[in-house]
Design a protein around this nucleic acid. Structure first.
Lengths: 241, 241
DNA sequence: CGCTGTGTTGAGGAAGATCAAGCGCCGTGG
DNA sequence: CCACGGCGCTTGATCTTCCTCAACACAGCG
């Protein structure tokens, strides 16, 4: 079993890697981020980091582990709004006394940090802004996924997105990444039942698009797959690759 | 036929009404908004206000008319991401040289204004922040709509949202509002075909949930309908009703 | 007067849901 | 050590929802 919350001690933290990839951070900002990440508090899998309708105490930075923004309906239906990966942030908003519009639940054991405050106009603020813009872009991608893609396309598109994001923070190597996702979670993210996810995944495997074994996803040919389902990488800034 | 871009001259602009509803604006801010709205530039229906992938020149405020954020796929499939109503804003972000992550197309003739700049910490900045937070909340609502609601629920939920938003800017009176939407647009917003929208709308009419005639939607009993489809009004702040 | 866009209806088909059962794995407790 | 239970994955059978294709009515408009 893979432990998602713990990284080798000498490797740079994926969370830090992501933030440094988003903007040209100065040494002080990097140090502040490192400190914040080092002081991150652990959270158990299945715990709720943020609860919908409650006031948001402070912004959060996922230092390690996977989480998901989720919405629950009265009759038990569940919709994952997005996945939160190391380096992603929660609750970065500019209004006083905000209340959470979605619940955030830990999919694995987590390390959750408090992002250091940023000076207006600083590179750190810039990184936060880019991060926020990316988050919105991925929400839009989720909408088109659910609205206009078939089951096969939805799965491929989501895995490509995860691959893209995990590449940014250094957690994906040569088309493969660890994904602590059950087929039921995948169904909740993609608006499908786990049964249908199962059958569709088998198709994808038979087509040679991917291998999913022991919690590790390997995309055979991400570029070809992206072309197959008509997906373009997400970009939010002229300055950002 | 209703003309959406033109308001009676003595009535307060819905766009202004919305902004003043979001925060306690001072006289100067209101005056600045009024000036901006008065100087809004007209845009023809079907024109693209923002184009996906292009750099965003400046933020925009919808002063009058309806628009939609839309994503187009290579094979012609189309997904509406959200509707933009008078008082809604586009491209409010905090990063230099942002590029648009979605196209914005005018559904009716529009009046598009440039929102006045806001001082940090001002009530106007507060209003902008709330507006932005609401926008995100409605994106999340769209995700659950597409992912977990049936056709009937999707239609009801979307119309309730429009009713809620049009109430905020004064464009809805006693459960009714003008909606310049074809059944095809509705399908593109809800991830359904126009044929299925048609049949499902007929069911809703037979159930007595709504009347849709001559471009005007009247919800028979919004509260009961909201309860029927399990919908709660969107809230983003403890301070905001 | 024909054209185009929108709404409507019908018939048939495909994608995905539902219900149900079985299997392998693993942690737990007797 | 083994039995048990829970969880996740897999499979089959059947049903529902929604899509596709097609045709037609109707209104506005050049």
């Amino acid at each position: 079993m893979t432990c998602y919350a713990i990284q080798p001690k000498d490797a740079p933290s994926p969370a830090l890697l992501r933030m440094t990839a988003l903007a040209e951070l100065d040494r002080d900002s990097i140090a502040a981020l490192e400190t914040a990440i080092a002081n991150a508090t652990p959270t158990r899998a299945r715990a709720e980091v943020v609860v919908e309708g409650r006031e948001i105490a402070a912004p959060r930075l996922i230092a390690a582990g996977w989480a998901a923004r989720v919405r629950l309906m009265n009759d038990g239906r569940r919709q994952f709004l997005s996945f939160l990966l190391p380096g992603d942030m929660i609750g970065m908003c500019h209004q006083p006394r905000p209340i959470a519009v979605s619940t955030v639940v830990a999919l694995t054991d987590l390390l959750v940090a408090t992002p250091p405050p940023s000076a207006r106009g600083s590179e750190l603020a810039h990184a936060y802004a880019i991060s926020h813009a990316l988050e919105e872009a991925y929400l839009l991608a989720q909408i088109t996924r659910l609205g206009r893609l078939h089951a096969q396309e939805r799965i491929a598109d989501l895995l490509l997105e995860l691959h893209e994001r995990l590449t940014l923070n250094g957690m994906a190597v040569d088309g493969g990444f660890d994904a602590p996702l059950t087929q039921e979670m995948l169904g909740d993210a993609l608006g499908l039942t786990s049964v249908h996810i199962n059958r569709t995944l088998q198709l994808a495997r038979r087509d040679g698009d991917l291998v999913w074994r022991d919690g590790r996803v390997t995309l055979t040919d991400p570029v070809a797959l992206a072309h197959k389902v008509g997906r373009a990488p997400v970009r939010v800034s002229e300055l950002q690759p």
